[in-house]
Amino acid sequence: MMTRISALALAAALVLSPLAAQAEKVGNVGAVNVSAHGTPPGGAKRALSVGLGVEKRERVETTADGSAQIVFNDTSTMTVGRNSSVVIDDFVYRGGGGAQGVSVAKGVLRFVGGGVSHSSGANLKTPTASIGVRGGAVLVRVGGPCGTLVVHQYGVAEVSGAGGGSETLNRAGFGVCVTESGVSEPFRVPPETIAALIAQLESQAGQSGGARRKPTNQEANLGLGNDRPPYVDPPPGLDALIPVWAGNALVQSQANSQNQPSPPATEERHSEHYHYYYNGYGPTGGYGYYD
């Protein structure tokens, strides 16, 4: 009897193992505002919740009130804004590199890179663009007259248009529009556009990102400490000394000539004004003082 049960268990394990291999967890839900759903490959649509595992090829969709942050195994994060739909096409992380691919069908997405993007790069796809993110962070919006708007935050973003053309973004705050006709020249994205994108990603009033207990400022003050941030503009260094040294050089240059005594007449050599000494260089030779 025991042998038969073991055989059945073994058979079941063999049958189910391909499914287990398919359900490859690539990260977890970090935060979620309802309603946001995930649809794993071959699985049913499910409501996302904080801490839930996310699989490769899972589709993440949000409604007009929904948003979600996915934390990948390489510490990269993807925040999916309202009215969005994305698919995690690929994720492989082997410590020193791997592959990461996400397709955005609609909506707003913020990608902040981690281990994969810092080594082999991550790839984001939209209906009109392919965005290679190397060690960086980008904001992406799909929809509207701009087609795909890519706003660079950090690192390097190589943007290719499905209809041809490409641009490399490497300066924070600059972006491109990618339509079916191609990729625009990089331009400085207006602050209000960036603000609107941030608003699409953040929790609205009354939302708590799925947290059972909200974090408080008091806890944050204790946890984050009181270290002062570094200077945006560096403190004075050698550059602050150079004018002072230049002033010294002017004075020293002039003083060198003004301090020089006049050559005294021979008969005045024993005057009380100057005391002569032999030196090692001059024609008098020798060394030592005399009056």
Binding site: G30, A31, N33, S67, Q69, V71, T75, S76, T77, T79, R110, V112, G113, G114, G136, A137, Y154, L201, E202, S203, Q204, A205, Q207, S208, G209, G210, A211, K214, P215, T216, N217, A220, N221, L224
Partner: peptide, 19 residues
């Protein structure tokens, strides 16, 4: 970037987490 991801998550939990 890792710190940014974590802080943005905290702000999703509480948008008034000013610190």
């Amino acid at each position: 970037e890792a710190g940014i991801g974590a802080l943005e998550r905290l702000l999703m939990f509480n948008p008034k987490l000013t610190r």
